[in-house]
Design a protein around this nucleic acid. Sequence first.
DNA 1: CTGTTTTTCGGTAACGTTCTCGGTGATTTT
DNA 2: AAAATCACCGAGAACGTTACCGAAAAACAG
Lengths: 337, 337
Amino acid sequence: MRRFATIKDIASALNISVSTVSRALRDTYDVNASTRQAVLQKATELNYRPNFNAIGLVHNRTHNLGILLPEITNYYFSTLFTGIQEVAYKAGYNLTLFVTGNDAEREVDIVRNLSLSGLDGLLVSVSSQADSDQHFQEVIDNGVPVVFFDRVSENIHTSKVMQDDYNGAFEATVHLIKNGYGKIAHIAGPEGLTFTQARLNGYLDALRKHKLPVKPSWIVHSGFTQQHGEQDLEQLWERREKPDAIFAVNDRKAIGAILALKRKNIRIGKDVGVIGFTNDPVAAIVSPSLSTVAEPAFEIGKLSCELLLKHIHKKRFEPEQVTLPGKLIVRESSSRL
Amino acid sequence: MRRFATIKDIASALNISVSTVSRALRDTYDVNASTRQAVLQKATELNYRPNFNAIGLVHNRTHNLGILLPEITNYYFSTLFTGIQEVAYKAGYNLTLFVTGNDAEREVDIVRNLSLSGLDGLLVSVSSQADSDQHFQEVIDNGVPVVFFDRVSENIHTSKVMQDDYNGAFEATVHLIKNGYGKIAHIAGPEGLTFTQARLNGYLDALRKHKLPVKPSWIVHSGFTQQHGEQDLEQLWERREKPDAIFAVNDRKAIGAILALKRKNIRIGKDVGVIGFTNDPVAAIVSPSLSTVAEPAFEIGKLSCELLLKHIHKKRFEPEQVTLPGKLIVRESSSRL
DNA sequence: CTGTTTTTCGGTAACGTTCTCGGTGATTTT
DNA sequence: AAAATCACCGAGAACGTTACCGAAAAACAG
């Protein structure tokens, strides 16, 4: 049954004290080179592995970071994770991943029952603008640093890293306008989420700046999936006046819209322009290919993790807010040839 | 600084012993209902959270499971993870995720440095048929149960759960044959991986059974990405005799092939049939839509985790090998209308 | 009432590690 | 040669929790 060689085993095998072994195993100071050598050799011989529970107990740190995500089956969040893991791995931290499935209740449940003593810090993208962010505040109050990314919580004072949703949406909308589309609809995400609101605002301001009509009936809110995108488009097409372009809150919904338009035999690009947000690899694969605003998912992941590590290592580290720019990528779906 | 309420704080606040508090916090036995009540109340009042390091130290278990994946930015592995997490969450286990990026060296590095004492078990999909599986055997020898899934290691005696790659490939190939394609090529994965070999064998046996030519020049091996698929197809089209159908080892490569064929103005389905493997959501989105063999990723994840938990809980549990069937999904890319 | 069982609780060791504090000798300084 | 310094090592407490054992108090049996 589960039995590792411990520091004590090494000590008794070598007839020295555990303290000496402990020192030998870490820094070289205060221990003779030869005994140190003997300890190291015995350690590999016995296949010694440090017990992280014990170390965590005395140091009150575990080299474990928690990540809380709404979902993982998705290009954006999975590359984001890859970015996080990139810096965590180099820094010697392990990552414990929690996925809420966009369920706010589950989020609270997870955070409340979090084995906080097993985590040195927490990276989170909130599942929905929960009525209360109290559960995150509790974590912070317990002395565990939290960094928000992408879907951030506004009420909590801590580091956050986001992409520039407002400007991305603004540029996307302007791009449609410059390509001759004048009746631009917006297929949005659920109301209440910060970044959904930011993209909506970018869209609205672009319209206003170019003196284009803002029609509330051309703005429809729902979830983030492709199916939602299809439904939203059907809804738009029931309107008396139909739009001639669509700015979708993300690529999955944009693709849903494209599929629905194709079913109606509407020529995408020519009759109706479409642009998304994210730059999911599918955007390049789908036909016609989808214009979009590329999000720096990988960089956001890296940056968030670096920030969290700073919080952990410095005693007092002032929260930072970073906003990374997106990048307009023009493809067929928004080009009137 | 990081300071939680401990069991001792509760004890001294209530003027009782720590052992009593400890008992009250867990089972009801051996403790008076009223004191139990008082303890529970004080615990929430002080916002008590159990210290998992301490518990792990005395019990030698941590309620932490490790997952080792080649990648996560990918439909298959991310839904697989979701399946794992589904059962882990209900069982009260946390998941520590390690992604190797298909780097065999990194895999060894991760496994060797694994804080094994922090994990109750390990779920792994190997990154490549490493020259040696020694590092996994070491983990098992240390008493940490390991369950393989999807990409399994043949030399290690432990539980494994896979999909039926052979029969899936066989059916896919037969499907192409029945639809009138006679010159079927195979865009395979890297040589040496078990499941790559299984799909190749299914393909070969289907050809043989239907007395179709097996041409080595119609079988090309490379990586798993869409780019690889495009390159493989280009390579096939340099052959003297070109195939009229393609069975790809996965959907991403199949889509690469489709894109390359489209660039050549070859009508997919009519001129050349294409079928993939996985049932990535893109398969339904791409145009023409891609026929494929659906893999039960979510179920594989669930089953693997259940098996691992069995290994952890029973003292001696005989390794099980489970093979789940795939499901042929016919779409446009393989239909000669 | 006495003796026995049950209920409820406390003391203490243990888990594996680090850390602080001394304590040897040996070596150097004055 | 005494004093100070140095290199190296050990004892023991501490981290937060559980487990084992026994004791006091209460309940019960005769």
